[in-house]
Design a binder for these strands. Structure first.
Lengths: 354, 354
DNA sequence: GGGGGATTCTAAAACGTTTCAAGAAACAAG
DNA sequence: CTTGTTTCTTGAAACGTTTTAGAATCCCCC
């Protein structure tokens, strides 16, 4: 049983090593030369007393910690953990620690975390904005002035600082073109919330592909969802009950696509025979669904890593103008897409159904 | 443009409100009566100057923060985020904030996070130990003496404090019995690392079921994996090349089961016709795999919530003896299990092999 | 208008570090 | 043995808050 039940501070180390508190600090931080005998005594006292500096006191005094905060909108969406891993790996290698907060797609909660994390004088902050993010406004407060910060995956409205995103429009453009090339002419989309730039961009890529193919976009073929499975399911039911029913659906992300799959199953429609489906994100599970899910791949891990590197630059004082990194997407073709039923097939199907 | 580019502290509020610093503090914390006019002046100064207390300074002075830390072993395993949500909801309602750290199944990293989080004088800590966790030893240091802490999902070796776990053995026991009742006699298991109590318990449930059915357990039918998909895939390949090949596999968790599915596909074996499969965790995606995955459900969200409540009790000073909450599991039957091929079927299958 | 008991307010000490100016010690050279 | 220079070491201030003891004020009642 150690005799040290009290918290051990620098004072006690100093006493035991017969040295001043300042010297202890210098040993701990290598902040000034300390002659060998003294240094040894200090080190020895530290290990024998089991001293660990109070990071709270240090952070308070230095007015800066070595923690980086990250706020994500939905920890249950497997895409975000991938991004987190990218951030974490880079930061950890650079001796920063990552603390993660889940805003739960609640802008209020996001704001609370922003404010409180800021109050802890983090080294930096990486934010994937929530759906209704007030990020730009919240961070406008002068308290945030010297907190390096990166906006990741989604551009918060009005955000002027660094950001890392993907070519959302290009992704859905490729996806939609792929469907067009297979012969689809009735292609619907289930978007994310249309005040999130991601969702808007993905919609625009879809629209561009159709426009280029001279196919008018039916307004009821554009359904606004919420980037989650349930809304995917609901919107899909709406779409699939339309007449004519679309032969292909572009989903705002893979969770939405999962919901679509559930809806298809419920209506006893086959995928891809009756309806083709393309998701967005390329989650690991896409290879295992039934059918396996064609999806627009985002480089989640690399997005995180890139954002972390950008943040490190800022922390180290770069004052380069705000960077907007935009990464590529890639269509991963799997089992959920195929050619549409021929006109004949479609007609017979239609008769049967009605 | 605000004129306050400098950080605004209590001192400035005090000055502007013509009041002492102590009074400001009392207003902010409701720690003593302050007469209406003064209180109003303070509040007014606070909002006009945009003051936000330095949580770092407060935490330092109070020697306690309102953050709770949580360390999880693998943020990419979708089971853990579920648990996190449970923890978070309870804590948030009680005005505590959750900060999450991902140990990445690296005991070294876990230790770093333990030590540094402790240095920030968190209100409490919830840990899902990593595979090789040194938790008990690390936390033995006196610094951790007054840090309430809960061990969640896995019992760290030697851990004596509060814990929340599930009936792992009962889970695999039920799973194995289900397979036995369907007629399976050659049942294999892919476990987690066998120094993790979860893995050991799950193995023991499997063994008990076989023992009760008087079926000898072939040692090569017990494969030790690592709770991840890749190891599930590798171990499954090993199992499926055995002769005789098992007709059913119990997987250590659902990620492992996903790996097994991949292996089955690669070997062109049908599930459940050729091999039945049961996972553990009941991830959301289980309903969407091909075939859908039978799994032992753990109440992830509720485990988290329970742990958070236990922690809150400790934070509030309960000195009840250490609690060990053990929650139930439930077999969720889906498409990946069926009766084994009969001897005849098996023979004809070889001939027919499409 | 003068106690006296509540209530409100203040000054100052602490919390554990870092940091800086300046003193002390060591060392090299004359 | 000085002296000058460099290298160590120290004491004390500062960081922004909370907290406590006691001073100031209020209010009521005689």
């Amino acid at each position: 049983m150690k005799k040290t039940l009290q918290k051990v501070t620098m004072r006690q180390i100093a006493a035991k090593a017969a040295v001043s508190i300042g010297t202890v600090s210098h040993v701990v931080n290598n902040s000034a030369g300390v002659r060998e005998p003294a240094r040894r005594r200090v080190l020895q006292a530290i290990s024998s007393l089991g001293y660990q500096p109070s990071l709270l006191a240090r952070g308070f005094r230095r007015n800066k910690t070595t923690f980086v905060g990250m706020i994500i909108p939905d920890i249950l969406n497997p895409f975000f953990p991938q991004v987190v891993r990218g951030v974490e790996d880079v930061l950890y290698k650079n001796a920063y620690r990552l603390i993660l907060c889940n805003a739960d797609n609640d802008d209020k909660k996001e704001q609370v975390y922003l404010n409180e994390l800021c109050g802890y004088r983090l080294a930096g902050l990486i934010v994937i904005p929530s759906v209704d993010s007030q990020l730009t406004a919240t961070v406008g407060n002068s308290r945030f002035a010297d907190l390096p910060m990166i906006c990741l995956d989604r551009q918060a409205p009005g955000w002027k600082g660094d950001s890392v995103t993907v070519e959302n429009a290009e992704g859905t453009y490729q996806a939609t073109r792929h469907l067009l090339e297979l012969g689809h002419r009735s292609i619907a989309i289930i978007t994310g919330p249309l005040h999130v730039n991601n969702a808007i961009e993905r919609l625009s890529g879809y629209e561009r592909a159709l426009r280029e193919a001279s196919i008018p976009v039916a307004p009821e073929y554009i359904q606004e969802g919420r980037f989650d499975r349930l809304s995917g399911y609901e919107r899909a039911l709406t779409l699939l009950r339309l007449s004519p029913c679309p032969t292909a659906i572009v989903a705002g992300n893979d969770l939405v696509a999962l919901g679509v799959l559930a809806a298809l199953q419920e209506l006893a429609l086959r995928c891809p025979a009756d309806v083709s489906l393309i998701g967005f994100d390329d989650l690991e599970l896409d290879a295992f669904t039934n059918p396996s899910l064609t999806s627009v791949a985002q480089p989640g891990y690399h997005m995180g890593a890139r954002a972390a590197n950008l943040l490190l630059d800022r922390i180290n004082g770069t004052d380069a103008p705000a960077q907007h990194v935009v990464m590529r997407t890639l269509l991963k073709i799997r089992g959920s897409v195929g050619p549409p039923l021929t006109a004949f097939d479609a007609k017979s199907k239609h008769k049967l159904r009605r």
